[in-house]
Amino acid sequence: MNPEESIRTKQPASSSNDAIGTSTKVAGLVAALGGWAVGIYAGFNLLVPLVATALVWLTGRKLFGKAKQLVLPAFCVQAGHLVWFLVGMAMSRPLPGSNLVDIVLLSFGLTWLWMRPGKIALCLLTVYQLLSLPYNLLQFSHAEFGGTENKVLLVHCIWRCLALFYMVRMYYRIGKPVQGQQANHP
């Protein structure tokens, strides 16, 4: 086949596929710029949960089978947040207080989610995040812009939103049949 024939046989891209591709590129660019801006603003406060989340995700992708891969995004975001609580507590050495409650609840919820992935564990963690997010947002709104507390609370709010997103995503995916199983049933 000559080059002219191969060009004529290719399908032209439809406008809907172009629109999806363009909107995905624009969303990716906006997310990258937003992530860069948050990184510049929050600095080191963003580094610990980001690296912890990435390490948990990479470890989980390598060590655990396909059955646990559905749990991994929701698990790793919250595990990264838990590591950040632990590092923050170790660095500041405060008396056990509200961070201890977060550490205990996250540890319990994540253990339950990992050992017995299901909607009940997701609901527990979702309620925890939904109760914590407004409190963090309120504190964030009262903190001085540019101050350490404001930066820390911004990262808390982002990680809580990420956790909620991945838990809702997992919640809806739990009920859906796997593609291979769907083909076997009439």
Rank of each mutant, 00 (worst) to 15 (best):
L82N: 01
P96V: 09
P134E: 11
V51M: 09
A32G: 14
K66T: 14
L131V: 11
Q129A: 13
G34I: 14
Y128M: 07
Q139E: 06
N99F: 03
A143M: 05
F140I: 08
V30F: 11
C123G: 14
N45P: 00
I20D: 09
L125A: 07
F75R: 09
E144T: 09
W84V: 00
I40W: 05
L63N: 05
M89A: 13
G97S: 05
N45I: 00
F140K: 01
K62R: 15
Y135S: 04
F140H: 14
F140P: 00
L105T: 02
G28R: 10
L137W: 01
G65I: 12
Q69E: 13
L46K: 01
G97L: 07
L33I: 15
L125P: 04
G146T: 07
V77C: 03
L131Y: 14
T111M: 12
R61L: 13
T59L: 14
R116E: 11
V26N: 07
G80C: 05
L50D: 00
L95H: 09
N136H: 10
Q78F: 10
P96L: 04
L110W: 09
A143R: 00
A42D: 01
P94W: 10
G21K: 07
L63G: 04
G65N: 11
V77Q: 04
V101H: 02
P134S: 06
M91I: 04
S107H: 10
A37G: 09
